[in-house]
Design a binder for these strands. Sequence first.
DNA 1: ATGCAAATGCGAATGATTCTTAATAATATT
DNA 2: AATATTATTAAGAATCATTCGCATTTGCAT
Lengths: 146, 146
Amino acid sequence: MAGNEHFRQLLKSGNLKSTKHRNAILEALEKNDVPLTAEELYLHLKEDGVSISLSTVYRILETLVERNLAARFNLPDENKAVYELKHDQHRHHLLCVKCRKLLPVDGCPLEAYEKLLEDRFGFTVKGHQLEVFGYCADCSEKRDSK
Amino acid sequence: MAGNEHFRQLLKSGNLKSTKHRNAILEALEKNDVPLTAEELYLHLKEDGVSISLSTVYRILETLVERNLAARFNLPDENKAVYELKHDQHRHHLLCVKCRKLLPVDGCPLEAYEKLLEDRFGFTVKGHQLEVFGYCADCSEKRDSK
DNA sequence: ATGCAAATGCGAATGATTCTTAATAATATT
DNA sequence: AATATTATTAAGAATCATTCGCATTTGCAT
């Protein structure tokens, strides 16, 4: 129950009641530190002894995204969405196309580019989505030595 | 039938037979110049008098992506995939979150960043996916004047 | 403690995508 | 130009992710 109070605050900041399920989902997202699908979250909670309905998982995630506490996006070649907590530091991910591992990377290279887009196209940038994919260190090694 | 020979070449380059349906899909993708969903393509073809099955559209798109003639990705807040032809110039898109228009932008700001990732994480970058979203010139104006 | 609004469970409904199988069409060969 | 070979397509069923509807339960202000 360590971070419970922390999550309660977070939820209050979005005008949301603090419930067992919401706390559990926030905790799972924080603990894992990589984007997860609704079903992965559902299974993690189950393992932790939290009984929950899959549709509730979806509903909670939708709410968190709505209140800007979480982000939803898609990884390449997947037809399901993943979710992660909004971090202080804006971040992206490296996706290994071989082992499908995800490596979070803090920081972002796009500030200058977005200014350029605003100047050149009169487009008001509100955000972006960037995923980089390739071979992680482990899988690169194996490929090299082959 | 203007570009037929052009598409035939393209398909041959991927070891694919040139068929009415594949040509029609390539033509629709080229003509529209923005990413389209499988269903949008299906409807466009229908309007052009090309009778095709939706599952064939999916299968052809999958094949084109496999052979690296097209790219598949997801736009924010959509749970369906869109497809576009691979262009000579690597490109990204500006998505207007208000009117949902898509504006293609040639060029890419990520070369330096990818080198940095390779150095810092030993990650071998094969590609990336970047979509920028915000308000297009038209929709920005309306917001300003409000 | 009580009541009301918000949250949840459960299963059905929807929407996108993939699969299966029989029929058809595109190419290489004659 | 006809044929054999093999890839491609149609049609709809099946699957998977996600959303919805409604009855029940829970959190929280009073």
